[in-house]
Design a protein around this nucleic acid. Structure first.
Length: 195
DNA sequence: CGACTTTGACCAGCGC
DNA sequence: GCGCTGGTCAAAGTCG
């Protein structure tokens, strides 16, 4: 996995990904990368990966009409089974999309960026509403969708859309205080950077 | 006072 | 063509 595609180059977030000890209260069983329609699964062998499966079976039609398949394991995660996802992509398909599913009691994971909520919508196949956020940094059009897994509300599904065109405030903070930054993250960590 | 959240309404696209 | 659904906007309210 190459986190260069991660729109959130936040050290804290990377810590969370790399070291769950840093964030003992949440796990990261799933990481999906959706890039203009395509995506990769980090853990497709896990039953949890049905989340991504739903992306694959987008537009299957099972999400509309019928008894929402609440007893159907294959549609359990239809909360992200965007019936119109294909069409939505045409509309919003600009840049990277990354979906996470994290086990967290918090809905909004602090990824170091400032987000402004601009919408909330209850989606058809989920008892939990979906929240829409935009990066509140001027000129940055990254969006984020947050919803709880309908099957297991202890999981939070976060979908990032787009790539930040700015540094995270947290990263900027670290840059100002390099002594706080792990050597591997320091911009001038290489002792041979100067002769 | 400014920034943010909430909430309802509106719009666009897709399936039937 | 109609209805359904998801996504976005904008006004009002709240909080620091």
């Amino acid at each position: 996995m190459d986190f260069s595609a991660n729109p959130n180059p936040n050290p804290n977030y990377n810590f969370a990904v790399g070291n769950t000890d840093f964030y003992p209260e949440f796990e990261l069983p799933d990481f999906l990368m959706l890039d203009d329609g395509g995506f990769e699964e980090e853990d497709h062998s896990s039953s949890q990966s049905m989340v991504s499966s739903e992306y694959k079976r987008k537009g299957s039609g099972s999400g509309s009409g019928g008894p929402d398949g609440s007893n159907d394991a294959t549609s359990r995660n239809s909360d992200i089974n965007y019936k119109n996802e294909g069409a939505r992509k045409n509309k919003i398909g600009a840049g990277h999309r990354i979906a996470f599913r994290t086990k967290s009691e918090m809905e909004v994971l602090d990824d170091g960026y400032k987000w402004r909520k601009y919408g909330k919508k209850s989606v058809k196949n989920s008892p939990n509403p979906r929240n829409y956020y935009k990066c509140s940094s001027g000129g940055c059009h990254v969006k984020k969708r947050i919803e709880r897994d309908r099957d297991d509300s202890s999981y939070v599904i976060t979908t990032y859309e787009g790539v930040h065109n700015h540094e995270s405030p947290c990263m900027a903070y670290y840059n100002q205080m390099p002594s706080l930054m792990p050597s591997t993250l320091q911009p001038n960590s290489s002792p041979s950077s100067s002769t």
